[in-house]
């Protein structure tokens, strides 16, 4: 008798093997996501996964769920539209740091501000993997990328701080090393009513690690093991990452705030009175 991998039921087997490089952490985050779906016993017919463009953008194509591969940076507006059109759905945006924080940066802060009920999982590998290793808004100061051959000098984004200050109700950061914690975090965030954001730091062995002479995927995973510090409820202001520096991980924000649809219903009920029919509750 041959046992089957529990992940297989969530994957489109005809599209595998995937294109991710040996040592890439994206596949590990997919395992954690499927584990969270399995343990939370979510109705898979109600789960949508939306990706933008990039290495992480391929996740939607490999998942055997209702999945959408959208244009670059536009995963969050696409997800917003789906959530508002059918509020019963659980919408997950699964994309990379270039897609979410650079090209879709504006969508990201406004979805957090409006508190749209979506879960955003951002796999942060500090570079544009698919297009050849250009600098992203999360690349560290001093890091070498194809567009910064003498090292990056731009101040990087601290994504948990950005999400927190824009109004997200759930903000966490883990690395590809923290598989159990990440799966638990995704499970918690799936239950949250509001904009949830999870940053997952993952190795990019082919471009980021090779250019910066940081070794292979496994060396980066060992670095995560050594240099990451779990600080739950840490002030997101203090969780910025520096090149080869300490990585603060944990669940930083878990709060309640009226979601977009709740605020809309309350407001229109007040203004229009009984003639307004509440939507999506």
């Amino acid at each position: 008798m041959i046992l089957e991998n529990p992940v297989n039921q969530f994957l489109r087997q005809d599209r595998l093997p995937h294109i991710w490089c040996p040592g890439c952490g994206i596949g590990t985050t997919v395992n954690c996501f499927t584990r969270a779906l399995l343990e939370s016993e979510t109705d898979l017919n109600k789960v949508m996964i939306v990706s933008g463009i990039g290495c992480t953008g391929r996740v939607a194509g490999y998942m055997n769920l209702d999945s959408f591969h959208t244009t670059h940076g536009r995963a969050i507006p696409f997800a917003t539209g789906m959530k508002l059109a059918n509020p019963d759905l659980k919408v997950v945006v699964y994309s990379g740091d270039g897609d979410i924080s650079a090209i879709g940066g504006n969508h990201f802060i406004h979805a957090a501000r409006r508190n749209i009920e979506i879960l955003v999982i951002c796999v942060d590998n500090f570079t544009y993997g698919m297009t050849g290793g250009q600098v992203t808004p999360t690349s560290h100061i001093g890091a070498i990328n194809s567009t910064t051959p003498y090292g990056n000098f731009e101040q990087p984004f601290n994504l948990p701080f950005l999400a927190d200050s824009s109004g997200a109700v759930y903000v966490a950061r883990w690395t590809a090393f923290h598989v159990h914690q990440l799966a638990r975090s995704i499970k918690e965030a799936l239950q949250k009513k509001g904009f949830s954001f999870i940053e997952v730091i993952a190795p990019c062995p082919t471009l980021y690690l090779r250019r910066n002479r940081l070794g292979d995927g496994i060396d980066e995973m060992k670095y995560y093991k050594e240099k990451s510090v779990v600080k739950n409820n840490a002030d997101t202001k203090d969780v910025g990452i520096s090149f080869k520096g300490e990585i603060v991980v944990g669940k930083f924000v878990d709060r309640e705030r009226p979601s977009f649809l709740e605020s809309m219903n309350v407001h229109y009920k007040k203004v229009l009175g009984d003639s307004y029919k509440t939507y999506g509750e």
Binding site: L11, L16, H18, G23, T28, N31, R35, V179
Partner: peptide, 10 residues
Amino acid sequence: GLYCPDFAIF
């Protein structure tokens, strides 16, 4: 199985 990025072991 949780770590494997290629779903090759569990």
